[in-house]
Design a protein around this nucleic acid. Structure first.
Lengths: 203, 203
DNA sequence: GTGCAAAGTTTCAATGGGTGAAAATCATGA
DNA sequence: TCATGATTTTCACCCATTGAAACTTTGCAC
């Protein structure tokens, strides 16, 4: 059932994303108007909104897919897999997504990261996306280990892990580290969170 | 140096905050227009923006003060205080702020919480405020323990702790818990994060 | 093919947050 | 009282976002 309708829609969607990213890179996010994006993609301004709910959404167009992949990991766990091992798997998949290219090109990653770091609206949005992911991951985890893990503990686990990783990445990037170093920081942070904060500082 | 100028400014600021919260409570956040807030506080619409940078800011007018209090804790630590103990202190102070009233009345707390939970724009903003707090706390911690704790570990600690607590609170509230139960959840989450995720699930 | 309904697009008009700049007010201190 | 600098108001915009109506394209039945 892949008629012309469907193909055309995908083409337009792609055109919008690419036009937008190109313009953002050239002139900056706030300096780019929706009218310009639409013009560049050769559709009317109104049509933009039948593809994306907002200007910000263009930047996060693939976050849904990424989350699904993580949820898939939880769903596909072996029935006797211990929770800590699964958590580690989730961390690894997340880090792979950040470097490996998959359906969307790694090409855009630096641009997107720079946008998120520098545009307040996008930063807020990124946090929101992360938050939604955390909530859904929490629910998935709770469902998967319903017998052994109540919601609060599941939330604590997800929150601690992602919280530590996120903040470590930001702190790393903030001091001028490369993306590779930031990834290392994330891995280290995950380790700290897994091991516990108890022995931090006096070692 | 408390002339009429200063006093008037404070009065106007207060009037704006109260007008806004009243209207938000009555008609909802999105349904309330800036023009209405300004009218209710008896100033021009334009003047609103010389007190707050945006509509959202009214809701978060005191977040700065709260953070300062936490940073104060870090600054006031005893020179030999072990990091884990300080972290615990920070958690306790945060929880106290949520229930104790101080310079801003507890009266508004439920309204604000409800607003944040239900208005996407405010939710995003709340996450952003929290994020900034995390970054500053990280820096403070790193400075305080410069010899023993690099930035990444400091970030991991702050991220894990606040991440766990935040998500636990949300998960708790989401399943219909009372504020008191949500606080308990936060405490439990902090404990889990301190102890480490390693032994979660198999116990 | 022809014709029609559904899907998708454009155009148009409006709302509301947010900003810049000039004109009007007003507290303060000489 | 008067000059001055700080605030406030007015006014004129920009731009994201939304609703509705008119129009075009695609898919499908005959």
């Amino acid at each position: 059932m892949v008629g012309m309708r469907e193909r055309k829609k995908q083409r337009t969607r792609r055109a919008l994303i690419e036009a937008a990213l190109r313009l953002f890179a050239d002139k900056g996010y706030e300096e780019t108007t929706l009218a310009e994006i639409a013009a560049e993609a050769d559709v009317s301004t109104r049509t933009f909104f039948s593809y994306f709910a907002s200007k910000e959404d263009v930047v996060f167009h693939d976050s849904g897919v990424r989350l699904e992949r993580l949820l898939g990991l939880v769903a596909a766990r072996k029935p006797d897999e211990p929770l800590p091992r699964l958590l580690l798997g989730i961390v690894q998949e997340s880090m792979a997504q950040a470097t490996e290219d998959d359906e969307f090109p790694l090409r855009d990653a630096p641009l997107r990261l720079a946008l998120i770091m520098n545009v307040p609206a996008l930063q807020a949005r990124a946090l929101h996306v992360l938050f939604d992911s955390q909530l859904r991951l929490t629910r998935a985890l709770h469902d998967a280990y319903a017998d052994r893990l109540d919601v609060v503990d599941a939330a604590a686990a997800v929150g601690a892990l992602t919280g530590a990783a996120k903040l470590a990445v930001m702190a790393s990037l903030e001091r001028g580290d490369s993306m590779e170093q930031a990834m290392k920081a994330a891995a280290r942070a995950a380790e700290v969170a897994m091991r516990g904060l108890d022995r931090l500082g006096d070692a």
